[in-house]
């Protein structure tokens, strides 16, 4: 299983490609590629977004589903999805907490 991830050009925000072709700020919204065809489609969409100057540093990443949630295989991608483990008040994890308590 793979997802397409990148950083948004204007502010560097970590984003993932969603099924509707938009770039979303939380990994839950990402489209999962379950086979080679889907991966190829995602990669092509990534190249297009790169050429259109929407995002930079586009990568297909490996994920698994754990307890019904998307979990990147590599620690690097888990940290990108949440924010620095040293500053849990920063990054996406902080927004989740705010949302949970808001």
């Amino acid at each position: 299983m793979k997802l397409l991830t990148a950083n948004r050009l204007i502010d560097g925000e970590v984003v993932w490609l969603a099924a509707d072709g938009s770039w979303v700020e939380t990994i839950e919204g990402a489209e999962i590629a379950h086979d080679k065809d889907a991966e190829t489609r995602l990669s092509a969409a990534g190249l297009l977004a790169l050429a259109n100057n929407e995002v930079v540093d586009v990568n297909l990443i490996d994920v698994e589903i754990v307890d019904g949630e998307i979990r990147p295989i590599r620690l690097r991608e888990r940290i990108r999805a949440l924010g620095p483990t040293t500053h849990i008040n920063l990054g996406k994890q902080a927004r989740k907490q705010t949302a949970a308590f808001g």
């Binding site: 050009l9 502010d11 560097g12 970590v14 790169l50 100057n53 990108r80 924010g83």
Partner: peptide, 28 residues
């Protein structure tokens, strides 16, 4: 020019690096 699309990332990257701007995991 980068934000307007006039410069590609390949063209812009060496220019931003000359000014201390990196792209890291979460942001610039």
């Amino acid at each position: 020019r980068r934000l307007s699309g006039e410069l590609t990332e390949d063209q812009f990257k060496p220019l931003r690096l000359m000014n201390g701007v990196y792209l890291q995991l979460h942001a610039y």
